[in-house]
């Protein structure tokens, strides 16, 4: 679909930043994601000035860590979400969040384009599933991610296609482990 193409294009822009410090690619990523990251931070409780400051920091981190991004394991939106979330915890809860050990790629091992496309497709499907959820269930997920749930408000089946994304990522991890040994 058109959305898959868009997601793969984002991934290509991140690799252009990693490969050749491509400022045009960065500006495009910035135009799309910076206002969303800022909105995310404000929704998490940061005021406007703090959210602007913190968003710039997130986007600068994206530039700096572009070489660590693996498009066969995460969509660009997923990857940016994790950077923004960690920065938010740093900032609002004042601790450096413990992160899992990194899985480096094997030497000169870059992911297969077919794997990249497949992962991006699964992510698109997941995003579509979230978008088409009944409003109440969508809100539930949103509130779970903003740490804003209370005891009595959680229930219901949503049926998100998380299983497929999980097996896709498992395959990518196995390939990675294989490449490293």
């Amino acid at each position: 679909t058109a959305q898959d193409t868009i997601d793969v294009q984002w991934a290509d822009k991140i690799s252009a930043i990693a490969r050749s410090q491509d400022q045009t690619a960065f500006a495009e990523v910035f135009r799309h994601f910076a206002p969303r990251v800022k909105a995310f931070l404000m929704k998490s409780g940061a005021d406007e000035a703090l959210a602007e400051e913190c968003m710039q920091d997130v986007m600068a981190t994206l530039w700096n860590k572009a070489h660590l991004y693996d498009p066969s394991r995460a969509a660009v939106s997923t990857w940016i979400f994790t950077i923004a979330r960690n920065r938010k915890i740093d900032l609002l809860r004042r601790y450096a969040r413990p992160e899992p050990e990194e899985l480096p790629w094997g030497p000169e091992e870059s992911p297969d384009q077919a794997d990249v496309l497949a992962l991006q497709q699964e992510t698109t499907k997941l995003a579509e599933a979230i978008r088409t959820l009944p409003e109440k269930q969508r809100q539930l997920i949103e509130r779970a991610y903003f740490g804003d749930l209370t005891h009595s408000e959680i229930a219901a089946e949503t049926g998100l296609p998380l299983g497929t994304i999980k097996s896709r990522i498992r395959l990518a991890l196995e390939r990675l482990r294989h490449a490293m040994t």
């Binding site: 404000m42 939106s77 997923t78 990857w79 979400f81 997941l126 979230i130 997920i141």
Partner: peptide
């Protein structure tokens, strides 16, 4: 792998966020 699935949910929500206005020179400052 399961964690990555939940992070993808977060990414989808981020991508769906209404845009907040950013500073005119945000990109330059970054």
């Amino acid at each position: 792998a399961r964690l990555a699935g939940y992070e993808a949910v977060g990414g989808a929500m981020l991508d769906d966020m209404d845009e907040a206005p950013i500073g005119a020179d945000s990109l330059e400052q970054t």
